[in-house]
Amino acid sequence: MVKVFDCPKSLTDMPTHYCPGCTHGIIHRLIAEVIDELGIADKAVGVAPVGCAVLAYNYFVCDMQEAAHGRAPAVATGIKRVVPEGVVFTYQGDGDLASIGCAEIVHAAARGELITTVFVNNGIYGMTGGQMAPTTLPGDKTSTSPYGRDTKKQGFPIRVSEMLATLDGPAYIARVSVHNVANIVKAKRAIKKAFEYQIAGKGFTLVEVLSTCPTNWGLTPKESLEKVQRDMMPYFPLGDYKDIEAGEKK
């Protein structure tokens, strides 16, 4: 018999703390699979955010740093400048990256910092109890937009990939989703490409992954995946937004 699928070596045995059906676990596994396939576990350094993934440093078999809220790209900059031969990645949610850490991610991208950011966008603050995120969809109810996000009062969601793709520093920016198996396979390809670009010194790389929050959305895991496809993907279209090897989209 041959192994068709097994747990990647770059994930620790520790079960994650994520709620049942939360797609953080899938995204963690994809990163670990990529680290395995590229054979970089012994030179990877990850940076964990503040948010639901705050404990991500427990789950990867590589060196990790835990950053203050939003500061992961700055911390990763410090690490990468000291260990240029290392492969440095940040793992950040939408509150961390698109709200409090907006300056850090924009400038790390603008500097063309040779790091890879995996940006998990589920349109809500999971950790602190389901508050409105910078990527919460118009009309969506959260614990701080109890009447539904009113764009007149609470502004519009930020499309991070599109925004960062306007900069010259990034080499690769893509938005992917993990709401079904086909897209999970594509998401992994994007993450792998991002790491490969980093290793080749091409520039800053970011993969935005549309993700779920069954607990704070109040939906079953299956319904959550359906919401990603039905509600999020029209607002946050999937695709490569920047690929310096392939030209720019749109």
Partner: peptide, 21 residues
């Protein structure tokens, strides 16, 4: 590195110090 803010600068220091520099 001229950081985008003092907040960012100190966190770059955090990363670099954590990497042993």
């Amino acid at each position: 590195v001229q950081a985008e803010s003092e907040v960012s600068a100190i966190n770059m220091v955090y990363g670099a110090a954590g990497a042993g520099a």
